[in-house]
């Protein structure tokens, strides 16, 4: 069984936010009105954490892309009362929208605040409706959703590989954010495969994971010289 993981090279990342836009389009994430967004109901599966250090004029800005970390030891799946979120054999933490009862316990339990909630029936402007991705189902009001590592792409990739009777090659399966990144800062692949680029990068001295002390073992690895 492969174990899918993501490496984000923060030294390459320019903080442009292309991954956020690509994610939003790929996964049919609802567009929230500005008023709603201001009260904290904005919906991003791939979020961008922006922190400012120092005082004007010597400001250091950090921009860190933050998807769901698909922890190997996820705190969210343990508290779900109805099997709506679970970790599968390939290490993907799935969210099943049609089973979710909307108790938001998983959002509370997630130390990375990776999940978002459909406070209202999701809506799109008319221009967006024609370019919704048919591969991803639309969510409904009152359920929790989150980054799926574009699991719908994995289904297709697996099927193609099975048709041709071969293994999935490194880099064949990549989420939309990784594909769209203009500086190729996002790598994706099987971290159990010692040949894969993700594995090699994860062994780099620059690599770190968010809040390793919690024991959640996130599968999103950051590379950074700073810190």
């Amino acid at each position: 069984m492969p174990k899918w993981a993501m490496v984000i090279d923060l030294d390459k990342c320019t903080g442009c936010g292309d991954c956020m836009a690509a994610c939003k389009l790929e996964n049919n994430i609802a567009i929230v009105s500005p008023e709603e967004a201001n009260v904290g109901r904005v919906m991003f599966w791939m979020d961008m954490i922006t922190t400012y250090e120092g005082e004007y004029p010597n400001i250091k800005v950090k921009r860190i892309p933050k998807p769901c970390f698909h922890c190997d030891n996820p705190p969210c799946t343990r508290v779900c009362p109805v099997y709506a979120t679970y970790k599968n054999d390939e290490g993907l933490v799935g969210q099943i929208y049609h089973r979710c009862i909307g108790c938001r316990y998983c959002m509370v339990a997630c130390p990375y605040t990776a999940k978002v909630f459909n406070w209202y029936e999701p809506k799109w402007p008319d221009e967006f409706k024609s370019c919704l991705n048919p591969d991803v189902s639309l969510r409904m009001v009152g359920v929790v959703e989150k980054c799926s590592f574009c699991a719908h792409r994995l289904i297709k990739v697996k099927e193609n590989a099975d048709m041709e009777e071969r293994e999935i090659y490194d880099g064949e399966y990549s989420p939309a954010c990784g594909e769209s990144c203009p500086t190729n800062a996002i790598y994706f692949g099987d971290i159990d495969n010692k040949e894969s680029q993700v594995y090699k990068l994860s062994q780099s001295s620059r690599s770190y994971r968010e809040m390793e002390n919690l024991g959640t073992e996130p599968k999103v690895i950051y590379l950074s010289k700073r810190e």
């Binding site: 109805v82 709506a84 089973r99 979710c100 909307g102 409904m140 009001v141 009152g142």
Partner: peptide
């Protein structure tokens, strides 16, 4: 508190 009280029976 449930977002989808109609799915209570899932419990």
């Amino acid at each position: 508190d449930l977002g989808r009280p109609d799915r209570m029976l899932n419990l």
